[in-house]
Write a protein that binds this DNA or RNA. Structure first.
Lengths: 227, 227
DNA sequence: GCATGACCTTGACGTGCATCAAGTTTCCAA
DNA sequence: TTGGAAACTTGATGCACGTCAAGGTCATGC
C-alpha cells in the first residue's frame, strides 16, 4: 500500500521539468506512471526496449553492464531528480545496461508519446531535452578520459573531491553515496584496490575514513597528490 | 584557392539533414561557413567554446584528449558526413577534447543560431538532433563497456569485425582508417601492444596483415577467439 | 640512386592493478 | 544479546599491458 503521489507536482519539481508550463506538465503527466522498487529489484534488464524514459523520485538506481563472465561494471548511479533511459528510448535499440534499485526507490516512467507530444508542442522543451542529453554525453566523455589517462588513485581522488564539493561549499566531510563495492565498480577498480587506495591516502594524512564517512583533511595536497 | 561549394546541396546530402525541407536547408546554410584544413592542422583546442558545431565533408578529423604528461587519447575518428561538437555547443562549456585534421580536410561550421532557428521552426529537426546525440551517447557507452570489461585483444577483434562489416556485406578485407598509432590510441592501447596483438591473431591464422590492409580469414573463429 | 625521417615491429623488462585467500568488522534479524 | 551473513580489509601472488630500447621497413625528397 502506498499513498498516491502528485505526479504533476512532482514532475514540476524535477530539474528537467523546472521550466515547464502547467499545460505541459499535465500532458506529460497523462503518460506518466509511478513505479515502486524494493531494494535489489530490477527495473529493466540489459537488452530491453524502452517505450519511455525514467525519472528517479527517491532512492537510488544503479545502471550497469554485465559481462558473460558474470562481472559487472557500474556506469552510473542515479539519485532523486535525475533521469535515465532517454537515449535508448530515442534510438529504439536494446539497452546495453540494466537498471537495479540499490535501495527502496520510486521512479516515474514517462511514455514516449508524452515526450514527443511535448517536443512538438514546445521547442523550449526540445532544447531542454537536448541540453540533458548533452550533459549526459559530457559526463561520459569525462569518464572515458578518467579511465584512459588517469591512475586508480587519481580517479579516487577526483571522486572524493567531487563528493565534498557537491556537499556544502567549504565542507570537508562527505558520505559515500553507495557501498564501497559499488563505488569501486563505478571507478573501474576492484573493492580490494579501492580499500588499499583509501588506506594509503589516509596514511599520508590526506583523508580520514570512518565507514562511509570520508573527511578530506588537506584538499590542496590531495589535489596535487601524485601516487 | 578553392572552388566554392554548394553548401545547401552539401548539407542536404549529409545524414543528419537528409530529411530537411528546402527552406530549412537555406536557413541553415545562411549560418554556415566552410573551413579547409591542412593535414595536422588544429580545428579547435581543448578548452575552446564552440558557437556552433561541425560537419565533416571530406578528409578525416581526430577528436582526442591530451593529458598534462603529454599523453594523448583518441576518442573519435570523424569521417565525411559525420558531425561533432553539438553537445559542447549546447552546453556552452569548454571542450574537453581538441580536434585535428589527420589528412587535408573540409568541414562545415554551422552557427548555433541557425540550429536553434531550425529547432524552433521544425520539431522533426529537433527530433533528428535528439536522435543524433543519442547515437553518440550510445557509442560512448559502448566504448566504456569495451574499456571496462574486455581485454585488449577482444577490443581489437571487435574493431576489426566492425570494420569488415562496414565494408560490403560478406567482405573479408578492409583497410585501417588511420595510422596504427592512431588506431591503437582509439582502442586504448599502445602501438606496441596493437602490433603484438595483430601479429598474434595472424599467427593463429585468423587474419592476414599487409600494411593497412587487413584480411579476416576466419570470422567465426575470430569472434570466438579467447586470448 | 641514396639519404632521411615516419612508422612500425620485436625483445627484454617493469609495474599497476587484478586475483585469490584469509581474516576482521559491521550490520541486522531472530 | 548473539549468530551469521554481508561488507570490508589485508597480504601474497600473478599477469596483462606499458615502458624502454633497438632494429627494420617504407615513403619521400634531393
Amino acid at each position: 500500500m502506498h499513498t498516491p503521489i502528485d505526479v504533476g507536482g512532482m514532475l514540476a519539481r524535477l530539474p528537467l521539468f523546472q521550466q515547464l508550463r502547467d499545460g505541459e506538465i499535465l500532458s506529460l503527466a497523462a503518460g506518466t506512471r509511478e513505479i515502486e522498487l524494493a531494494k535489489g529489484q530490477m527495473l529493466f534488464q540489459k537488452g530491453y526496449l524502452l517505450d519511455g524514459f525514467y525519472v528517479a523520485v527517491s532512492g537510488q538506481i544503479k545502471l550497469a553492464f554485465s559481462s558473460a563472465q558474470g562481472n559487472e561494471k557500474v556506469v552510473a548511479l542515479i539519485g532523486p531528480g535525475q533521469c535515465f533511459g532517454e537515449a535508448i528510448m530515442f534510438l529504439e535499440r536494446p539497452s546495453p545496461v540494466f537498471a537495479q534499485a540499490l535501495v527502496d526507490s520510486r521512479v516515474l516512467h514517462i511514455a514516449k508519446r508524452s515526450i514527443f507530444a511535448a517536443i512538438n508542442g514546445d521547442s523550449a522543451f526540445a532544447c531542454r531535452m537536448l541540453a540533458g542529453l548533452s550533459m549526459r554525453l559530457h559526463g561520459l566523455v569525462q569518464d572515458v578520459e578518467d579511465y584512459s589517462l588517469r591512475s586508480s588513485t587519481q580517479r579516487v581522488i577526483g571522486f572524493l573531491l567531487q563528493l565534498v564539493s557537491a556537499a556544502a561549499s567549504g565542507a570537508t566531510e562527505c558520505e559515500l553515496p553507495a557501498s564501497k563495492h559499488v563505488i569501486a565498480s563505478r571507478l573501474n577498480l576492484t573493492p580490494e584496490t579501492l580499500s588499499r587506495i583509501l588506506h594509503n591516502l589516509a596514511e599520508f594524512g590526506l583523508i580520514a575514513v570512518k565507514g562511509k564517512k570520508i573527511t578530506v583533511l588537506d584538499a590542496e595536497r590531495l589535489k596535487r597528490f601524485n601516487p
